[in-house]
Design a protein around this nucleic acid. Structure first.
Lengths: 219, 219
DNA sequence: TATTATTTTTAGACTTGTCTAAATATTTTT
DNA sequence: AAAAATATTTAGACAAGTCTAAAAATAATA
């Protein structure tokens, strides 16, 4: 059984590998985990000994099948607890990350299955991220960043690619929440900022940076 | 902020001090925590440096005000999570201890307050143990062990002094659950076993050992 | 009270996870 | 392709928590 620390490394490597197909570099992991490269190297050796990652000196690492299964299990735990915190304890989506970081390490398949049942087998967490099932299967819906969407099409907010508290709070205040329907009314060419229409009446201006981090589904 | 290990020591010392007014001895702590006396001594020094316990060489330790506050906070967390596991996730009272042992270390007053609210500010956990409030105040009701109760009085099961899985499962099977009303019909002098009447019709025989570990309230 | 027996502490070692500083590889740039 | 920059690894150290074996203190008993 992996320690909490090891679980965090696996989760981190999983996250990086989602974007970089080549794998996770020592420095990338160090930056994500806010630790030092030397520390990461030490841990990579340990994870490699346990056959959780594919590690060759000076090369980016990838997860083995076992490692990936463990990583997906942590992700599942994390996202289910986030659903619990938002749906049941009434936290808002920008408050739950730190709590879920702790709760995700609670060890027990039985517990997490009961939680899953209690929550009604949710498919997505409060940020729109998909929740792997108990076998590690993960369903993704094909979302695109808002900045890549076309004007005048019916869109629905179904995720974010930035989980930062400030960003999420801003979205809350602007009513750009999960499930919100919207249409792009105008795209300003010079700075790629855009004007949105939500609820068929309210007009909102957002910057390119914000648009990039909002994921939408075309209806 | 204390580590999980330190929190377990504080909780353990609190538990022992509930019974032994003089304090918790090194060996008692080692036995309860299933570790070695030498390890305990090391930790006692650390806790003492942090002013969490009163420690003098070769003497039983007690908690300081700060230490007691921390211990009560862990106890509160533990018991609230147990209520959650039984009430919401539908575990039975003999299954929840290990999970709560992990959940009790989740750090956040805000989280535990929300959980408390969500559960409706319960006063007792699924085993009948009182839940300290956020200030560490703990209300106890005056229960007595069933073996000390008199025959033919109306009694109500309101706690257990043994939290062992086998014992609790046995109680489950015999319908000797929390809140159960009963009357002692006969006490056998030679082995102190007794015959109980529950639900005004079902007769149950229990040993002295079992009776000792059931706490009842006289109505 | 002197002698056992028990309890507690000390000393030294090990593991996990972390760090800094230095050495070695790999990449990038010229 | 050589020099410079960057990335990664090694070496050695440290803190937390644990252990065994041995020493010291306290308690029990003859």
């Amino acid at each position: 059984m992996s320690s909490q620390t090891q679980e965090n490394y696996l989760k981190c490597i999983y996250k990086i590998c989602e974007k970089n197909i080549q794998g996770a570099s020592t420095n990338a992991i160090a930056e994500e985990l806010e630790t030092k490269a030397a520390t990461v190297t030490d841990m990579l050796k340990k994870l490699s000994n346990q056959k959780l990652i594919n590690y060759k000196k000076y090369q980016a690492v990838t997860l083995t099948a076992i490692g990936k299964k463990q990583a997906l299990s942590i992700v599942r735990n994390h996202r289910l607890w986030e659903v619990f915190l938002v749906e049941k304890l009434k936290f808002s989506w920008n408050e739950v990350h730190e709590f879920a970081e702790q709760l995700e390490h609670i060890k027990s398949d039985e517990l997490i299955d009961r939680l899953d049942l209690y929550l009604g087998h949710p498919k997505f967490d409060p940020h729109g991220d998909p929740i792997p099932n108990k076998n590690g299967k993960i369903v993704t819906h094909k979302t695109i960043p808002l900045n890549e969407a076309k004007s005048n099409e019916k869109l629905i907010i179904s995720g974010v690619s930035e989980h930062n508290d400030d960003f999420l709070s801003y979205l809350n205040e602007t009513n750009l929440i999960l499930g919100q329907k919207l249409v792009i009314k105008k795209i300003n060419e010079y700075d790629k900022s855009m004007q949105l229409l939500i609820n068929k009446k309210d007009s909102i201006f957002i910057s390119h940076t914000v648009a990039k981090n909002i994921l939408v589904l075309c209806q």
